[in-house]
């Protein structure tokens, strides 16, 4: 193949080598080289999130197997308060949406809206966490703590693990707000924020599975 063959109409032949830029002129920075750093960072963090979801799937499997093993203790239908779960769900969904608004503000490099939307994300996430802690405390006070039965052990492990992720996410959120304030919208800071927003949205997806399979199905049984 001579140099005359390297014309625009031959570009599709290079798709197998690197398809990052040819199909989407806005998505990647270049068409022939490796994918942009933003795409690689997002991909790497996406792999971490998927492994995290696989860990959660093991907890879901444990819960599904043990959900009937109440050892004569309280059952899911006697314990769960659907109204509280609806409030938690609303908080987390609104928090996820506020995080999306923060992504838009970051792409516009608007410091005030970035801080405001991140603050809203954090406040709603903290409200979710407060509701969950209140629920756990009331369960323990009613003698339905994690040591009561295998069902409650699996329940506290699964939902508590999600709560721990939210707690870690809130700490991460605080450092992101500080970094945007102190360092501005530098490229590496924006990449960190991309990872945070993926993390936060993925936690909302796991919560969908929790409120559907654990709470709604449990409250009916």
């Amino acid at each position: 193949m001579n140099t005359a063959a390297l014309q625009p109409q031959d570009v599709p032949e290079q798709v197998g080598h690197s398809d990052a830029g040819t199909g989407v002129p806005h998505g990647a920075t270049d068409s022939a080289g490796p994918a942009s750093r933003r795409i690689i960072v997002g991909y790497g963090f996406w792999l971490f999130l998927l492994s995290d979801i696989i860990m959660f799937s093991a907890f879901f499997a444990t819960y599904a197997v043990l959900s009937g093993a109440t050892d004569g203790g309280p059952t899911a239908a006697q314990l769960f308060d659907t109204r509280n779960v609806a409030l938690e769900t609303a908080c987390l969904l609104a928090s996820s949406f506020a995080c999306g608004m923060a992504s838009v503000a970051v792409s516009e490099r608007n410091q005030m809206w970035t801080q405001l939307t991140l603050l809203a994300t954090g406040v709603l996430g903290a409200a979710f966490l407060a509701l969950e802690i209140k629920e756990f405390a009331s369960l323990v006070a009613r003698g339905a703590g994690p040591t009561r039965s295998a069902f409650l052990t699996a329940f506290f492990t699964l939902v508590g693990c999600h709560g721990l992720h939210i707690t870690a996410g809130l700490l991460w959120l605080g450092t992101m707000m500080a970094q945007f304030l102190a360092k501005g919208f530098r490229e590496n800071i924006r990449h960190r924020f991309l990872c945070f927003s993926l993390f936060w949205h993925a936690l909302d997806i796991i919560w969908i599975a929790i409120f559907s399979l654990v709470y709604l199905n449990g409250a009916r049984a």
Binding site: G21, T22, G23, V24, I39, W46, L47, L50
Partner: peptide
């Protein structure tokens, strides 16, 4: 989208 193939496959 084409720039998302890897993400979809991992998913």
């Amino acid at each position: 989208a084409p720039d998302n193939t890897n993400n979809v496959l991992a998913l």
